[in-house]
Design a protein around this nucleic acid. Structure first.
Lengths: 166, 166
DNA sequence: CACATTTACTGCGCTACGCAGATAAATCTG
DNA sequence: CAGATTTATCTGCGTAGCGCAGTAAATGTG
């Protein structure tokens, strides 16, 4: 263990829970600023950046509708988003051979390297933090990220469905 | 430990590190959608929501300039942001007695309860995840959130300063 | 083969945002 | 203390992302 925050014996359970909540709030605030800075640096809008990240995560092509769902945008806005990325040479759009209504979007190879370059320095900095944790601790962190993401998705669905009904 | 991801012996160190990176990317994507859904639910824009979260985090009043820095907006946009929140009755703006150039922004009590209500159900859902961790694990999570937030802020500053020079 | 559904795209209006300049208050300088 | 400089916020203006609603084409269904 590598720092002051790890001396769990000094906090009560309730204090620990409250601290995670507070830290996550600050974390998201800082993340937003960082994400925006990265987007500016690459010359894209934060939403476009998010879309690129999604495409970078998926090995295969993604449809415009998938992008709309994954970003929370409407189908029209997703179309415009892909328009921008195509125009900027970041992605390629072609019709799905099996369903010609759908248009499949793939990240251009040049964009992949561009993103990788932009992540070089930040990636090292974040990597240095991760390097300080043991395997077991990394496992806990990955588990936390995964499960809270699932809860976030579920809650977003709940809010979206209750939106019209309320 | 409470799930499949905790069997750290089954992954190599490199795989664990890669998994944390992947999970965090998906995590942020889901967070964005959730945050947007929450903003829609309370009738605010995501940026406004972020500002309210910042104000909710701080006990004392925050200046417009602080909001600009903490959100990454320009001073003009921050002014407009506060305008919207004042008009919506979410915050109150008054001049700083000690420095009458500055305007201090405080969260209105009614807004605080409104936010608390909106967070009730999601808070329980996220709380259920946290409840499954031991004190030591919660400590690791809080530490991770804290340190990555710091790195994010530092990297954002680096990108912002290098922006004009490059 | 007619009809409903799905998927993506387009016209339109709204508004958040950055930029640049203005204003006013505080601070520095001689 | 007068004038210059710096700091903090606000305002006019143009750009552009976004949602909404309607359209067109491809697919599924009886």
């Amino acid at each position: 263990m590598s720092n002051d925050f790890a001396r769990s014996g000094e906090w009560s359970r309730a204090e620990l829970l409250a601290r995670v909540v507070t830290e996550s709030q600050r974390h998201y605030a800082e993340y937003s600023v960082f994400n925006q800075a990265m987007a500016d640096h690459v010359g894209l809008h934060p939403t476009d950046m998010q879309c690129v990240a999604l495409l970078d995560l998926e090995p295969g092509p993604v449809s415009t509708g998938d992008i709309a769902r994954l970003t929370g945008l409407t189908s029209g806005s997703a179309t415009r988003l892909v328009d921008r990325l195509v125009k900027a040479g970041i992605v390629e759009r072609r019709a799905d051979p099996h369903d010609r209504r759908r248009s499949l979007v793939t990240l251009a190879p040049s964009a992949r390297t561009r993103i990788a370059q932009a992540w070089e320095t930040p990636g090292q900095a974040f990597g240095a933090v991760l390097a300080s944790y043991s395997d077991a601790e990394l496992s806990v962190i990955a588990d936390y990220l995964h499960r809270t993401a699932e809860v976030g998705r579920a809650q977003a669905r709940r809010l979206a469905s209750g939106e019209t009904g309320a």
